[in-house]
Design a protein around this nucleic acid. Structure first.
Lengths: 196, 196
DNA sequence: CCGATCATGTAGCGACTGCTACATTTCTCA
DNA sequence: TGAGAAATGTAGCAGTCGCTACATGATCGG
């Protein structure tokens, strides 16, 4: 029993180190031997504890998603939806969310072409992440019947901004986020008709 | 001279086949031998004509971006910006833009972790793509002084929707696009203050 | 028709991949 | 304390990677 407990601890300890390494060096092109050497173990042990590369990758993606969800959970609700969107955007640009979203991006891009286990694990993480985002939007005062609609708009757009910001145009994105926040606020307060 | 012409034609011919294969099977994990076998040549010849795997990948990303820009260029301008955003969204979901954007996503995700040639070629394609999008927004009646702001908002958000649509929630995205189109229209007509 | 350049086939190199067989050490618990 | 399980080290397997040396067709201008 204690042996099992200890082995679980060892696996958990390895996972934390692997996640730390992946957050810094990326998920695409990850291979066992360089990874193992970087965290002071061997490919032999990674396979022993996780069962194979696929399971290790799935565990990493799931864990980084947990970190993302926890980061949203730790975010203090803003006064209104518009302030919430801006607070979300600040969180997107800070750690740990910034690096976690990059991992998600790499997993999603790989999963889009059907590669497992990326495809499956990304689908699973999406539900948890979307629920967390919808919860935060609701906590910011969005009416529950429109929280899902707002969360979808904000989720997609902020992720697009995140990618654009990382790739190019670091300045012009700010205005876009402000516009998005204004639109989300208008939807929340049912003033969306004024812009339609 | 004719020999050179023929060799250029051969390289171009190979590139078209490679792009066709990549559009279908993805960019991440692309390797020379299976690719060559699929299009009826050998890794030896791909390296001979392109110089190496990196140059081949860069050529593929640049070419798919050209296809994307051409698709935007072939898009008839809408009556207003709001209609333009919805027309863009329809184009995003149809070929060839749908597959081209998936290639861009994979290249961007790989370039984000610093891997060359992805990082460099994605940066180069971004400028052409952004210019094409801004041009279309302008053609739809956006005032030039706000076309860049609108294009950034629309580009980031629609790409986020594209990713979300491919991964999950195919239904709930429609309302988000409509909201985005409304917001873009409001910005274009300087009615954005009404929602701020 | 001949030399030269281009194009392609053949074979293989060294490195790396995930993974495994086997032996060994370390630890736990009766 | 000793038996058994868990954890780890060592060595290597079969496969794939990008790439290249070498030889051979193919095609051209002179």
């Amino acid at each position: 029993m204690i042996g099992i407990m200890l082995s679980m601890d060892r696996k958990e300890e390895l996972l934390e180190q692997v996640v730390e390494h992946v957050l810094e060096h990326g998920l695409i092109g990850l291979t066992l031997r360089p990874l193992a050497a970087a965290i002071g173990t061997s490919d032999r042990m990674l396979i022993y504890h996780f069962g194979g590369r696929d399971e290790l990758v799935a565990a990493v993606v799931a864990r980084t998603n947990e970190l993302s969800v926890a980061a949203i959970g730790a975010l203090a609700p803003a006064e209104d939806v518009r302030g919430g969107v801006e607070a979300l955007w600040r969180a997107y640009r800070a750690e740990p969310l910034h690096s976690c979203l990059q991992i998600y991006l790499q997993a999603a891009a790989t999963g889009l072409i059907g590669m497992e286990p990326y495809r499956s694990v990304v689908r699973e993480t999406n539900e948890l992440w979307y629920a967390a985002l919808r919860g935060y939007i609701t906590a910011c005062g969005a009416p529950p019947e429109r929280a899902g609609r707002i969360a979808t708009l904000v989720d997609s757009s902020l992720f697009g901004f995140h990618l654009d910001l990382a790739v190019d145009r670091p300045d012009e994105v700010a205005a876009g986020v402000a516009d998005l926040a204004a639109a989300a606020g208008a939807i929340a307060e049912d003033r969306i008709h004024s812009i339609i």
